[in-house]
Design a binder for these strands. Structure first.
Lengths: 156, 156
DNA sequence: ATTATTACAGATAAAATACTCTTTAATTGA
DNA sequence: TCAATTAAAGAGTATTTTATCTGTAATAAT
């Protein structure tokens, strides 16, 4: 698993927010329900994003979370950096400390290039991009089962 | 972390074997010592590889593990498949079950291509390739600290 | 045969990750 | 002002991964 569970939950939730209400509050309970993410766990994850100034939050009735910036100004890498850190994009794939250009592991050259491309891709993919894809091209941010249950009301 | 700790340990140990003694037995204790891997843990990991017919093992004095096939016939992907499974090369990076061509997540197209390239790279990289690089081009399979301690006899 | 060596098997422990619950504080709306 | 709602904070539990230990079985050398 390249991204932690917490991180994938976080991405799903902010994409949900960017898709459903890019300029207003979305309740964490609603996002958790629609995306089939454990509610209590999601609150923790999103608190991290709030702490990192990627989300705003408001308590009380009709409260929730809101994107702290325009969706075009938040990249997937921002979310990943806040939750998992940037380790994946820096570490040796064989886990060798000190692996680098001066003293490479046997896979260093290949992997250092690949992970950099991956980092760039996450860096240039914004919530606006993803939300647009979700809306226009039916890309999913929930599992097939969740869509059946929550949107089509089919028992699975 | 894309590969588990167990998996990186396993790769390091088989590469060590392919480098040190591609046609004979290498003791697990020696590999653990040279690579600075917890011995008891490494025995577990290598048992998995033995179970998967990638290694042969012999108990008793001068026993150890040996490559079960020619080093050119064992790929890094074989090792990864045995220890971590092929999940990384199949799973949605956002963790969405059912993600695929028919019902992609927003990152599916990019990631499915990347992970396939990564799989192919691991698939076509054999222990013979890696061992040759280690020998001829001073690529490392141990950490800088281990090299200082074990090879250069410098305290770190 | 006996002893030393080494992998195997199974149990246990520690650490990291994933998940849950309870209480508190802020906010809204009646 | 009061009740309902919702996120924050902190503690607690569960599961998985990583690491360790203890004893057993196989092998080799003496």
């Amino acid at each position: 698993m390249i991204l932690s569970r917490a991180c994938t939950y976080g991405i799903q939730a902010v994409v949900y927010t960017a898709t459903q209400n890019p300029n207003g509050y979305v309740s964490i309970a609603e996002a958790a329900r629609e995306l089939n993410i454990p509610f209590y766990f999601l609150t923790k994850v999103l608190q991290t994003l709030t702490d990192n100034k990627l989300l705003l939050s408001k308590r009380g009735a009709n409260g929730g979370i809101m994107l702290a910036k325009k969706s075009a100004d938040i990249s997937l890498l921002d979310i990943i950096a806040a939750i998992d850190g940037l380790g994946v994009f820096q570490e040796c794939i064989l886990g060798l400390p000190g692996c680098g250009h001066a003293s490479p592991c046997p896979i260093h050259q290949y992997w250092s290039g690949q992970r950099e491309k991956l980092r760039e891709h996450f860096s240039k993919t914004t919530l606006a991009d993803v939300a647009q894809n979700v809306r226009e091209r039916a890309f999913r941010i929930a599992s097939i089962e969740d869509i059946k249950t929550n949107i089509l009301n089919i028992e699975v």
